[in-house]
C-alpha cells in the first residue's frame, strides 16, 4: 500500500526541501520506488536541489489540468532507478493547486509507487494545506530555535484538525519530528535548546537529528541529495532517519559535541 508522506514545518528555511530530497533518495536507496513532489507552486526549487532543473518540461499543474500525462512530467533520477522527481509549476496563480486534481494525481501515483513524498511550501496557506491534506505520515522539520518550534506546534495542530484523515475520523496522521541544523556544541554551552527539550515541548516521536553540517550546502550546490554523500554527518543522519522510518532501531548519533583531533582543529572541516 502506497504511503503519502508530507514534509512540512510552518516556518520557511528550516530544511524542508533538503529533507524531502534526502528522504526520497534514502527510501529509493533502500529499494523502495519513491516519487518526490514539489508543492511550492511559483517557487519551484526541488528540481535544483535534486539536480534535474534542466530536464523539466511538464509540471504538476500541467498534469492536474490535463495538459500532460504523468509519464511526461515525472523525471527519472539518473543516480537511482527507484527515484522520481515531480516538479511544480512556476505560475503565480497559487490556486492552480486544486484539491480534487491533486487527489486524482496522487491516486494515480499510488498505483506505481511505494512512497509519495510531498514537499510542502512554508506557511499555512492554500499550498501548505493542500500538501498535508492527503498525508498518511507527516515529518515536521524543526530547527532548535523558538520561532521554528512554535510554527511546528501550529502545523501539528492543523494536521490533527484539517487533514483528510481528521475530517473523515480515520486513524490520525502519523507525525514525526525531525530536528535539523542541530549544533551539539552550542547545546552543551546552553545556547541552543536541546533535542530533549524540543521533543518534550512538541510531544511527538523523534525520527532523527540532523547536525548542522557543511555538507548540506555542498549537496545543494551540486544538486545531489545529501544521502549520496556517505561520508558526511548530515548524510549519515538522514540514512538513519530513513531506517527508523522503515521501523528499524537506530541509536541517535551526533547529539554530543565531537572531540576534535589535532588535525581537525588545524584544518577544521565538518
Amino acid at each position: 500500500m502506497a504511503k503519502v508522506i508530507v514534509i512540512t514545518s510552518g516556518k520557511g528555511g528550516v530544511g524542508k526541501t533538503t529533507t524531502s530530497a534526502a528522504l526520497a533518495a534514502g527510501l529509493a536507496l533502500r529499494g523502495h520506488k519513491t516519487v518526490v513532489i514539489d508543492f511550492d507552486v511559483g517557487l519551484r526549487n526541488l528540481d535544483l536541489v535534486m539536480g534535474c532543473e534542466r530536464r523539466v518540461v511538464f509540471d504538476f499543474i500541467n498534469v492536474i489540468n490535463g495538459d500532460a500525462n504523468l509519464n511526461q512530467a515525472l523525471i527519472k533520477d539518473k543516480r537511482n532507478d527507484n527515484l522520481f522527481i515531480f516538479p511544480t509549476s512556476q505560475t503565480r496563480d497559487k490556486d492552480a493547486l486544486k484539491r480534487d486534481g491533486v487527489e486524482r494525481v496522487l491516486d494515480e501515483l499510488k498505483k506505481t509507487f511505494d512512497y509519495i513524498i510531498c514537499d510542502s511550501p512554508a506557511g499555512i496557506e492554500h499550498g501548505a494545506i493542500t500538501a498535508l491534506y492527503f498525508a498518511d505520515s507527516a515529518i515536521i522539520v524543526t530547527n532548535p530555535e523558538v520561532s521554528s518550534v512554535r510554527d511546528s506546534d501550529r502545523i501539528i495542530g492543523i494536521l490533527s484538525s484539517r487533514s483528510r484523515r481528521a475530517e473523515r475520523n480515520e486513524p490520525p496522521v502519523d507525525i514525526h519530528l525531525l530536528l535539523t541544523r542541530y549544533d551539539p556544541e552550542r547545546v552543551a554551552r546552553g545556547e541552543m535548546v536541546s533535542v530533549d527539550d524540543v521533543s518534550e515541548i512538541l510531544s511527538i516521536p523523534l525520527l532523527g537529528v540532523i547536525p548542522e553540517s557543511e555538507s548540506v550546502l555542498r549537496a545543494s550546490n551540486t544538486g545531489t541529495p545529501v544521502v549520496f554523500d556517505a561520508e558526511s554527518p548530515a548524510g549519515r543522519a538522514y540514512v538513519d532517519a530513513v531506517a527508523r522510518f522503515l521501523g528499524e532501531q537506530r541509536e541517535m548519533r551526533f547529539l554530543k559535541p565531537e572531540r576534535k583531533g589535532f588535525f581537525r582543529v588545524l584544518f577544521g572541516r565538518a
Partner: peptide, 16 residues
C-alpha cells in the same frame, strides 16, 4: 555567557 536555551524553553512552554 548566560544560558539562553533555558529561557527559550520557558518562553516556548508558556506561549504554546
Amino acid at each position: 555567557r548566560p544560558k539562553t536555551a533555558a529561557i527559550a524553553k520557558e518562553r516556548l512552554k508558556i506561549v504554546l
